[in-house]
Design a protein around this nucleic acid. Structure first.
Length: 277
DNA sequence: AAAACCGCCTGTCGGC
DNA sequence: TGCCGACAGGCGGTTT
């Protein structure tokens, strides 16, 4: 599923092909994708305009369009893919299509239709609760080991739940939360408050290293995720534990375990990640 | 305040 | 073979 590395990969792949191109037509095939605005208004404000820049915040993609911003979230199965020609057949679950004058297109495809598009005045995220309340960017200088320590202090929530809480740290999902906890040797059910300062330092470093390496390999394609060019990522080949229940731990050889933690299937090594340290 | 649960959707998979 | 429930997991909303 698209988490920070996947969304960042989509951003980087789309940057060279969608900026500064006048939009000739906006089609919305799945109406529920457009939030807080009528389809007609959405189309009217974007038609004739151009995307001037493309940013990412957490798992959100933010296209600059004049005095407006188009905010996209892929949720579970969304894809934003650039097609060099409108004659390329559309995928079955195409939700929206932005056509450029030159005949190429940016398409939002989404099997499960959870993805969203918001058009808001630049910087006005009050209507997008998730974006408005987003926590620190984990690959920014503001995310320090000390900040992670502060986030954990006094919180009884399981560390896995805290890592998935977008209002604390922006962009981690199930895959990278599990991979980071494994890299740091921390059990997902440990209470956040029980982490030592040294463990927070290890976890901080693990989060940054896992995310950076995943970005370097264009993200993880399990099923649905594709880059902005429709290609699969490669980080699935470098995952240490995610989706590997019953296989041997790459570090110690013990069979990997899995169980529901904070409502999500969680993978961990019962030997390398002790519940009681 | 925080955690647990549900709804939103569709495709896939395992069991019978 | 086909049917059926469980499951996948991000997020908003509601309940506990």
């Amino acid at each position: 599923m698209p988490e920070l590395p996947e969304v960042e990969t989509v951003r980087r792949s789309l940057l060279p092909v969608v900026l500064g191109r006048p939009i000739s037509k906006v089609e919305v095939l799945t109406e529920r994708i457009v939030q807080n605005r009528s389809i007609a208004e959405f189309q009217g404000l974007l038609t004739g305009a151009s995307f001037e820049d493309l940013h990412r915040r957490g798992k959100y993609l933010i296209f600059s369009v004049g005095e407006w911003e188009l905010v996209a979230h892929l949720r579970m199965t969304g894809r934003l893919i650039y097609y060099s020609s409108s004659t390329i057949p559309r995928a079955k679950h195409t939700s929206a299509v932005f056509s450029f004058h030159s005949g190429d297109e940016l398409r939002f495809e989404d099997v499960r239709k959870f993805g969203t598009l918001d058009l808001v005045p630049k910087g006005d995220y009050a209507s997008i609760k998730g974006l408005h309340s987003l926590g620190v960017e984990p690959i920014s200088p503001e995310f320090t080991a000390e900040l992670l320590w502060e986030l954990c202090r006094g919180r009884q929530a399981k560390i896995k739940a805290l890592l998935l809480d977008q209002t604390k740290i922006a962009g981690l999902g199930n895959i990278y939360a599990d991979e980071s906890l494994f890299a740091a040797g921390i059990h997902p059910e440990r209470s956040s408050a029980s982490l030592t300062e040294a463990e927070c330092h290890r976890l901080h470093r693990a989060i940054r290293e896992v995310l950076e390496e995943a970005i370097a390999h264009q993200g993880t394609t399990f099923r649905d995720y594709r880059t902005g060019f429709g290609q699969e990522g490669a980080f699935q080949n470098r995952l240490q534990i995610y989706g590997k229940k019953g296989e041997a731990c790459p570090r110690c050889g013990v069979n990997l375990a899995h169980k529901k933690v904070a409502g999500r299937t969680s993978h961990f090594c019962p030997a390398c990640q002790r519940e009681q340290p």
